[in-house]
Write a protein that binds this DNA or RNA. Structure first.
Lengths: 237, 237
DNA sequence: CGAACGTTTGAGATGACTCAAGCGTTGTGG
DNA sequence: CCACAACGCTTGAGTCATCTCAAACGTTCG
């Protein structure tokens, strides 16, 4: 079941029939290499991607080429569903690791909007989940110091991966470099490196660029002022 | 016409009949005092607000009470439409200045979703416009220096107000304090004050806490690395 | 084996913050 | 209608978090 992770463990979830509808809307499944740009800003879009496996990201570059990630997408995310109502995006979309995606043509979504209002509303919900994460990211870069930002991001990522069965709460695979982490947190990679060393030395968290080990989840959440409410998880606070 | 500013001058716009539908969905019009919290995080919502006049904001506070604004809403914005699919919000909503809002019960929106798929998609679009602005704000706090952030915000605000007829491109009313500006840009109010002085001394822009005068729009846009594409304005770049 | 890339560490620079104080403006109640 | 309180603006001085520049090391892969 390709779409099993989509909206899994969220306060709004899909009925089996709705899941089947989305499954049926998939036109093809693609395998993408790591570090490829998939959608460029301004490009007219006629399809969107559901991430099945791997990590992707959305980002905005500044004039000197410095990059700010505005979202990281994990399996189960509808990566560029924003492109459906918007018709073109205001940012680039790229793979971080190798990835598998299901392609859903916008014509299939047109039909869902016209015929299945309840499902339409759930698709809408999923894009607003992205918006809620954008807001949490804004809080992170606007009001937390370097260690807080990294801690907050790691807490968020753990919670998101746990929701789709990819973390046990203490340990999860995460194919990000320290440079990626810097572009997520609005820091330099050099400073990220120093923050990670501190988190390691304090026995709070070990980040190894392919695996993250959380030794003291409470301390990490406290340091990042993290609460998962904005992820709209079932059973969440 | 209360809703005349909603989606005005955007790439997606409302048909007269659609505008009438929304107009008809308004249950009441409220006048709100300045600096009041209107919706609190986590509150269950059964209505949303269309801002007719004044300024509102959405924000997240950290543990020590430091505030990060995640959005500023201008007349014509559907302030908390996110609360419709989400049912509760992850942040607070408050007035900045005195404001007039049209109240739209969610039951009326339910009907629109069920019966008017094209209009539903436009409402969806308007929430994704908010998401696009969140992303621009992320870029701003993550990758611009203090003066760049202030310049970027002023450019964005000018463009948004111009779209609804509240700026002539050089001068517009803006009832924000330097403290508000700091909470928007992820800075301290003291530093915002210094940045504003520099912008004034360079003859780029004068911010007077009730009126903004842009003396050199090109320089301001350059300094803030601003492009309005993410606002999805008609005739925009 | 070498190239490319990511990680690690050090030293020094700097942009933004904190603390502190004074000033201006507005609104309100005596 | 004045006085005072509350609030926002302004400026200075000193501190500190993060950045920049530089160099070395480790790992992966062709």
């Amino acid at each position: 079941m390709l779409t099993e992770k989509f909206l899994r463990d969220r306060t709004v979830s899909l009925e089996p029939a709705e899941r089947a509808t989305i499954e049926g809307a998939i036109s093809e499944v693609l395998t993408l290499g790591a570090r490829h740009i998939i959608v460029r800003e301004g490009e007219r879009l006629d399809r969107s991607l559901l991430l099945i496996d791997g990590l992707m990201c959305r980002y905005i570059d500044n004039r000197q080429g410095h990059r700010q990630l505005v979202a990281m997408q994990v399996p189960g995310d509808f990566v560029d569903l924003h492109g459906f109502p918007l018709t073109k995006l205001d940012h680039d979309v790229a793979t971080l690791t190798g990835a598998t995606v299901a392609v859903i043509p916008h014509v299939a979504l047109d039909r869902i909007v016209a015929e299945q209002p309840q499902l339409c509303r759930k698709l809408w919900f999923s894009t607003l989940l992205d918006a809620a994460m954008h807001r949490a990211w804004l809080f992170r870069v606007g009001r937390l110091d370097a260690m807080g930002r990294v801690a907050h991001f790691l807490c968020e990522t753990e919670a998101r991966l746990r929701a789709v069965g990819l973390s046990n709460g203490h340990r999860f695979a995460l194919g990000l470099t320290q440079i990626d982490l810097a572009e997520i947190c609005g820091l330099t990679n050099i400073h990220v490196n120093r923050v990670l060393r501190q988190l390691r030395e304090k026995r709070i968290c070990i980040f190894r660029s392919s695996v993250v080990e959380i030794l003291d989840a409470d301390a990490l959440a406290r340091r990042g002022e993290f609460s998962s409410h904005y992820l709209y998880l079932t059973g969440g606070d």
